[in-house]
Amino acid sequence: MVKVAVAGGSGQVSREIVDALLAAEKHEITILSRSEAPTNPIAPGIRWQKVDYDDKNSLVETLRGTHTLLSFVQMLSDPDQKSQKNLIDAAIAAGVKRFAPSDYGSKDIVDMPWWCGKEIIREYLRKVNEKEKVLEYTSFQPGLVLDYLAYPYKTSKYLDPLQTVFDLANRRAMVVEDYEDAVITFTTVSDLAAIIARAVDYEGKWPKTGGIRGNRITFSQIVDIGRKIRGSISVTKVKVEDLEAGDLKSSWGLQAVHHAVADDQARALLKQVAIGFLLSSSKGAWDVSDDFNQIFPDSEFTSIEDFLAGVWEGKP
């Protein structure tokens, strides 16, 4: 048994991970949050600690005795990533052994400026460990959450549906012309949670890049699966040069935005997200490594075809 702290532990993805840790019945779990503890406890045995990420000294005291710190700190509202930097500094001062930053996505952040904070934190972790290793860390990278391809249907306990360029509900998709074979990794949030729970128990050294390959698949293969399951998929092909110019030449666009984004920012960000996802995919950003697949070779992952067939069976 070890003490695990989950920063930003009341969020949607983090709640999925907390449930997986609880199911293991091995660890003492503390949720760190800017908010007061909810009236109804999340689960028996979980400790809730309200924190101020600007108060490093308080963070150090809160983290004393913690073995593993998982961060799900919201990045969009903190462009300089001060909160996570303070959290890292406090973890080092408190003697925390392991840290996972708020990453949980693509391998690279090229053409995805809304995620520039991820690279800031990756570089900060490299810097603090430059002279000697003071904090073991990994960036869990499962690619895109497969559950999003079920939009508008909810397939997990906490994670809300999110629209992507693969809009199976309306039988349509966007693909970059000449990059139909660009690779994307998809992993269900439940499979991600299972790997993280195992990683917490793992006694070996964490890899700095923690790739998790649930499904490694191309755009054209996704379209083929979509057609098999949904009957037809209309494909809009967009050109790299248009995307590079900030122009999304498509008859449709994304409409469902992440819950953390303010309404007045949504329209511009949705266009930016579609362009960024398509461009970054063409440059290999979503073709993540298989580090944790190798560490846990017996792990089983939900196949994209089985998942989508189950979601869309009987749906209009």
Rank of each mutant, 00 (worst) to 15 (best):
60 V>W: 00
175 V>P: 00
82 K>S: 11
26 K>I: 13
260 A>E: 11
7 A>S: 08
258 H>Q: 15
168 L>C: 10
24 A>D: 10
285 A>V: 06
103 D>Q: 06
57 N>I: 04
266 A>M: 07
137 Y>N: 09
211 G>V: 12
149 L>D: 10
175 V>A: 00
125 L>S: 06
165 V>Y: 00
47 R>V: 14
269 L>N: 04
142 P>Y: 04
191 D>H: 06
26 K>F: 04
62 T>P: 14
75 M>F: 08
216 R>G: 02
15 R>E: 11
312 W>L: 12
127 K>Q: 11
21 L>R: 05
133 K>E: 15
299 S>R: 10
41 P>M: 08
95 G>F: 00
181 D>F: 01
137 Y>Q: 09
56 K>N: 07
193 A>C: 12
294 Q>K: 15
162 L>M: 10
302 T>K: 11
277 F>A: 04
74 Q>A: 14
269 L>Q: 07
166 F>L: 15
19 D>A: 07
109 I>K: 07
4 V>K: 05
138 T>H: 02
252 W>N: 06
54 D>R: 02
86 N>E: 13
52 D>Y: 00
263 D>P: 15
51 V>Q: 00
18 V>L: 04
211 G>Q: 06
181 D>R: 09
206 W>E: 14
200 V>M: 05
232 S>I: 09
44 P>H: 01
42 I>Y: 12
2 V>W: 01
70 L>M: 07
216 R>Q: 10
106 S>V: 11
70 L>F: 01
41 P>T: 13
74 Q>L: 14
201 D>Y: 03
122 R>H: 14
39 T>V: 15
220 S>G: 03
137 Y>H: 11
172 R>L: 11
102 S>W: 01
133 K>W: 02
307 F>W: 01
42 I>H: 03
131 K>S: 13
247 D>A: 10
256 A>D: 14
245 A>P: 08
157 K>P: 09
221 Q>D: 13
203 E>G: 09
12 Q>A: 13
235 V>G: 02
86 N>L: 11
18 V>F: 00
77 S>F: 00
190 S>Y: 01
183 V>M: 12
306 D>Q: 05
195 I>S: 07
308 L>C: 13
274 A>F: 01
126 R>K: 08
225 I>N: 06
14 S>Y: 01
90 A>R: 03
286 W>I: 12
179 Y>M: 03
181 D>S: 12
246 G>H: 06
147 D>N: 15
191 D>S: 08
251 S>F: 02
313 E>Y: 01
87 L>W: 01
297 P>I: 13
200 V>P: 03
167 D>G: 07
176 V>E: 02
17 I>V: 15
96 V>P: 08
243 L>Y: 08
110 V>Q: 07
